[in-house]
Design a protein around this nucleic acid. Structure first.
Lengths: 207, 207
DNA sequence: ATATCCATACAGACATGAATGTAAAAAACG
DNA sequence: CGTTTTTTACATTCATGTCTGTATGGATAT
């Protein structure tokens, strides 16, 4: 085979990324060679080296297909600003929905549980970046909630933020270790709802 | 060099494990060769292959030096059985104290953030095993707490268990990504205390 | 006590295989 | 025909496992 049309070249690029996802997920990043990825896509290493500089570059491209900042997720839901706790809930829900898509699930699982640093890639740094992004957003919402008197008395907004962020993070990690064990959407929403209920100022207090 | 005494042989074994910890932590497991480990310990690969079957065996031995089931931690604290929530707190505290020791910190960080499967080692499975162990223990305590009427009304013990486990897990993961950023003991205890306060039935309800 | 002998605890060299990156050839498009 | 896409072939590097060599420790016999 050789050159088809421009669109078909793009298709092989995508095919390579798809293959990378699958093989990385099955074998881990370090244990998979570019040869394996190419073969899995029905191509050869030559194609890989044409489209990507090297393994790290391929990896980055794979990640770029699923990036989604928390704020964007929230924006998608069209949540209003007057109820920060509900906004958090919606953002959370949106995240979980995304995670149920195979592509997002696979790539996140790879990033978190199936790779260590290589080349100029540091998965920990990427995770930290994503976590920090999420933490900042959550922090803002809880600060608002606190100002509006929506939080339980004695619960500092920073603590509430870290609690929820830890729950989110822990949930992700645990679920990604074995995504078929349960539905993250159902369990996740149950946990957020329970936690938000715990953190919300109750009517008796508010009166 | 050649054969020293039996005690000295044991010392080199430990030295190799120490070296493995450090190099694994710095470079990741996949990227470090047995040669690097041996050199870092001032020895050669011959020593490594004498004491260990291969890389996976060495890795397992490294893990074995820090294993500690949650129940054992709780036992160490000598907590009484009449206050399950306090028992959970103490177990948590004990875990965090352990984590502040460099050895535990390093090994856990390696297991969680610096290795993917290789040989017959599946770090995810090991994590799942540890998490499950912890989950079972927590589940028992919260079931007791529920029976004793210590939990907030409407809070199912299973949900409480999963919440706390997620918090623990999330906290570990986040901190291990950058252990020098903050004290896990301080922040961790603040979070558990806050969470336990939220989950405890308040006096008004109890009356 | 000391000489002998074997198992132990390493070091060093070697063979193998696998993955990488690159360069050159080949095939198909325009 | 020239350019773009892909294959094939090749050179290099590197980790692994194994094998051999060797000096010592310790047990046993004398």
């Amino acid at each position: 085979m050789a050159r088809r049309t421009k669109a078909e070249a793009e298709a092989t690029r995508e095919a390579l990324l798809d293959a990378a996802e699958e093989v990385f997920f099955d074998n881990g990043v370090a244990r998979t060679s570019l040869e394996q990825i190419a073969r899995h896509a029905g191509l050869t290493r030559g194609a890989v080296y044409w489209h990507f500089k090297n393994k790290a570059d391929l990896f980055r491209a794979m990640l770029d297909r699923v990036r989604m900042p928390f704020e964007e997720l929230v924006a998608e839901t069209g949540a209003s600003h007057d109820s920060p706790l509900e906004t958090v809930r919606l953002g959370f829900q949106q995240s979980l929905l995304r995670l149920e898509q195979p592509r997002h699930r696979r790539v996140l699982a790879i990033l978190i549980h199936r790779c260590e640093f290589f080349g100029d890639i540091d998965p920990c740094a990427i995770q930290t970046e994503m976590a920090g992004e999420c933490l900042d957003a959550l922090g803002g919402y809880f600060a608002d909630a606190h100002r509006l008197g929506l939080l339980k008395q004695g619960l500092a907004p920073e603590v509430a933020t870290r609690l929820l962020q830890a729950i989110l993070s822990g949930l992700f990690h645990d679920w990604l270790r074995d995504p078929d064990a349960y539905s993250i959407y159902e369990r996740g929403m149950a946990l957020v709802d329970a936690q938000l209920a715990l953190m919300r100022r109750d009517e008796a207090e508010a009166a």
